[in-house]
């Protein structure tokens, strides 16, 4: 296991490359989902405001 993590002396390079890739991909999942939910919320609020006004 230690040998695997050590990556033949290239641990810093290999793990940082994989780590940065993971972070960027996860941000690409979270941000659009949050945007979609925020948008649905905004549209809903606007529709409810319109409905409550005569």
């Amino acid at each position: 296991m230690n040998e695997f993590l050590h990556m033949g002396g290239y641990a810093a390079y290999v793990w940082s490359a994989y780590g940065i890739s993971l972070v960027v991909l996860i941000l690409n999942i979270i941000l659009p989902i949050r945007r979609e939910q925020a948008l649905l919320h905004t549209i809903k609020k606007k529709l409810q405001r319109e409905a409550s006004k005569p």
């Binding site: 990556m7 033949g8 002396g9 290239y10 390079y13 490359a17 890739s21």
Partner: peptide, 11 residues
């Protein structure tokens, strides 16, 4: 390149 070539799989 030893183990460093494994970066290819994300690059």
């Amino acid at each position: 390149q030893g183990e460093s070539f494994r970066i290819i799989y994300v690059h």
